[in-house]
Structures are given as C-alpha cells and as structure tokens.
C-alpha cells in the first residue's frame, strides 16, 4: 500500500511521518499546491505550523489546493490520519468534530504521554488492544480539544473517541481527556500526540507504529 504525506509551507514533521509510513508500506510526499493524490491508499496530514499558524491553527491550510482532493478522498471513504497540526487542519476543514484551543497553561509542552486505546475495532487502532496503553510523544501549544456540549455528547455516543490521555497525563485541558477522535463514518482520524515519532526503539517507544500498521491492515483487508 502507499501513503501520501502532505507538505504545506511550515509543515515540519512530514519526513518522520513518511519514514513511519515506510515501515509498513510505501510513502510519497504530496505538495500543498498540487491537486493530484497520485493514487495513494491513505493520506497523512502531518504536524508542524502550516502557513505559520496565521489567523488560527489550521485555518489557512484547509483551503490549499491539495485539501480539495483530500476532502473528496475522505468523502469517498479513503483513510485520512491527521497528526497534531494535521488534526487541527482536519477540524478546520470540517472533516473531524470539534476544534483545538490553546493549552490551558498557554505553554508549549513537549513530553512523552500515555494514551489509552478506547476502541481497537477501527481503521486506525486495529493493531492495538482495547484498553492498551500507548506511550507516544506530544508537543504542542494548541492541543486542547473542545466541542460544544451537544456535539461532545454525540461524539461520545457514536464511539468516535479512539484515544484518551491516561489518567493524570493530559496537560492541555482537553475535554474528557480526548487525545484522538474520528469522524462518524470512521475513515478520518486525528490526534494531537505524534505516533510518527514513536516508531523506532532508538527513541524509546515503538507504540506509534501500531497506528500506521492499523491503517495498512485496513487497506490490505479492503483490497
């Protein structure tokens, strides 16, 4: 299978994302100004500071030419993973519920966090076990997931929360400790922590690889 990893001006984690994808398949970088997804099987919207985070995080990237194609790809059921800034972009694009607010402390935080897998029957978590803890680094200033009460209730009722910060691990103030949430259809998922930075024993944890492996498993099952 082949992943497409987006690159906007200001993206900085696309190479790590590409290397993570290459552990389970092939991966190409897709430039924000292009429209061609080159027939990829899954799209990763990586972390960074697309368009300098101007106006609001993710607000400008949402209108990039490549995003028109990503939105169409997602509407057709293609798997799309948003990491950190990618999560913010997908929320702004209306592909994922809610929005990311500044951390409650207003500080940039970079540290390893423990996440709890809420569901393991999904495109993005099928290589995990339900209730399993994943150790993955997080590094952001604007990662406090928020949804208005009615939307939050709906997201929980639909089982759209796939990852939560383990008790005591959330530093950003996210509602209900939400670390990662998917869309209702189940093919678009975003999270603030960085699974692409946790794929090699050299850096301490390979738990992040399970999310990429899950996508590969899912694509293989549908081919």
């Amino acid at each position: 299978m082949r992943f497409g990893v987006l690159r906007f001006p200001g993206t900085c984690d696309e190479v790590d994302a590409q290397l993570a994808c290459e552990r389970v398949g092939e991966a190409v970088i897709l430039w924000h100004g292009d429209r061609d997804l080159q027939g990829v099987d899954a799209v990763v919207v990586p972390g960074g500071f697309s368009y300098g985070d101007y106006l609001r995080v993710g607000a400008i990237a949402r209108f990039a030419p490549i995003m028109e194609s990503v939105i169409a790809f997602a509407r057709e059921g293609g798997p799309v993973l948003g990491i950190c800034n990618g999560f913010q972009v997908l929320c702004e694009a209306g592909l994922l519920p809610g929005a990311l607010l500044p951390n409650k402390t207003l500080r940039f935080v970079c540290r390893q966090v423990d996440l709890v897998v809420e569901r393991a029957d999904t495109v993005f978590t099928n290589a995990c076990a339900e209730g399993e803890r994943l150790s993955i680094p997080a590094k952001h200033t604007t990662g406090c997931w928020y949804a208005p009460p009615a939307l939050h209730e709906q997201v929980e009722a639909n089982g759209q929360v796939l990852l939560r910060y383990a008790p005591g691990e959330s530093f950003n103030g996210s509602l209900a400790d939400v670390a990662g949430v998917r869309n209702e259809a189940g093919n678009v998922f975003g999270l603030m922590p960085h699974p692409e930075h946790a794929v090699d024993p050299l850096t301490g944890s390979t738990d992040g690889l399970k999310l990429f492996q899950s996508i590969a498993n899912s694509v293989a099952a549908h081919v």
Partner: peptide
C-alpha cells in the same frame, strides 16, 4: 472573541 464559557487562558492570564 472566544465564545462565552470556552476556556480562555489568555483572558485569565491578563
């Protein structure tokens, strides 16, 4: 401006 009731850490800091 942030909607009423939304966490506004900048406002709180000021």
């Amino acid at each position: 401006r942030p909607k009423a009731g939304i966490l506004d850490p900048q406002g709180q800091a000021v």
